[in-house]
């Protein structure tokens, strides 16, 4: 693994290795002294062309807990059309000696361009690009699912285990969601079954090629498939206005069809958990009842995000895992 650009690039073995490594990282975070010396002297640059305080802080925390030097570079405000150039920024960072570049960009494919252009020699980690991918989000979701739903809900050792047989419903604005794209690929790689649920306007043309079922009816999916987990996607209110594309008639109608409320929560199997990548629109895609219920693991997802990002940076920069080394030798 030289870069982490897309969840679809990961083999099952690589994905499980990341989850296992994340579990080790999480264990160290329960100690009193959380900092590990692993990446001392290495430089991680957070290159954020798009605002996302929570993702940036998560990566920053992960890098610092591994003792890396962290540079935060916010290029926000530089519009894509004006082309405040990704290239020039990358060349600058290269000159600073970045060992890894964590990039968040509003343009789909920007991390791919950065990784293949030769503008930087560092490892590139995609922290969310346009409506394309957000692989570390999918990894932290998978990690969270495994903790709760594999091996008696965390009571036994799940090292080496994938998500075989789990049923996951991903609900909401699939069309604009990099979280959905990443999760569909990674969950399939790990053996889970995915059902995408949303209004037809928010499901992309071409979805037929994805490794997921598609339904337009959340109540049917809950009743018929009895999902082990429901992942709610953030829906932007602007999407209903005509300027925003007119994807649905009103927030109220959206909530009636696709919102997770107390009634739907009660209809889920007893063991089922609720995920959300945040930030939530309470009252739109998720009600306060659902968001604050004990089955919601949304706060835990944030903590798991740090562990997963530590694992990714560790595997990319320290190259410790056997699976990674074997591939490098091949």
């Amino acid at each position: 693994m030289r870069h982490l650009l897309s969840a679809g690039d990961l083999t099952p073995a690589e994905a499980v290795t990341i989850l296992d490594t994340a579990a080790q990282m999480a264990a160290t975070q329960e100690r009193e002294i959380k900092k590990l010396p692993t990446l001392r002297g290495r430089t991680v640059v957070n290159l954020f062309f798009e605002d996302s305080t929570r993702t940036r802080i998560s990566f920053e925390t992960a890098a610092k807990r591994l003792s890396a030097d962290v540079i935060n570079f916010s290029a926000k405000g530089s519009s894509v059309s004006k082309g405040e150039s990704l290239k020039d920024t990358a060349l600058t960072l290269q000159a600073m000696g970045a060992d890894a570049v964590v990039i968040r960009h509003q343009a789909s494919g920007a991390p791919h361009t950065l990784a293949t252009s030769g503008w930087t020699h560092g490892a590139v980690v995609n922290a969310g690009d346009g409506t394309h991918q957000h692989p570390t989000q999918a990894l932290l979701d998978a990690y969270t699912l495994r903790r709760h739903l594999v091996g008696d809900g965390g009571r036994s050792d799940v090292t080496g285990r994938d998500l075989e047989g789990l049923k996951v419903a991903i609900v909401g604005d699939v069309l604009h969601s990099r979280v959905a794209r990443s999760n569909v690929q990674l969950l399939h790689t790990l053996g889970a079954e995915v059902t995408l649920v949303g209004p037809p306007t928010l499901v992309p043309v071409g979805v037929g090629a994805w490794t997921a079922r598609v339904s337009y009816h959340l109540d049917e999916v809950i009743a018929d498939e009895k999902p082990d987990a429901v992942m709610m996607l953030r829906v932007q209110r602007e999407r209903m206005s005509s300027a925003g594309g007119g994807f649905f008639p009103s927030p109220l109608e959206y909530t009636r069809g696709y919102g997770l409320d107390a009634r739907r929560l009660a209809a889920l199997p007893d063991h089922a958990i609720v995920l959300h990548p945040g930030p939530m629109n309470r009252g739109l895609e998720i009600s306060a009842d659902a968001a604050d219920s004990p089955r919601a693991v949304i706060v835990e997802q944030v903590a798991n995000g740090v562990a997963v990002r530590m694992a990714v940076l560790y595997l990319l920069l320290a190259g410790g895992a056997p699976a990674t080394n074997e591939r490098a030798d091949a």
Partner: peptide
Amino acid sequence: AQMHEGVVSAELGLAGWP
């Protein structure tokens, strides 16, 4: 619109030109 709308645009997350 950024590219042809279909299987590839859906995966790449680029806005479709149907």
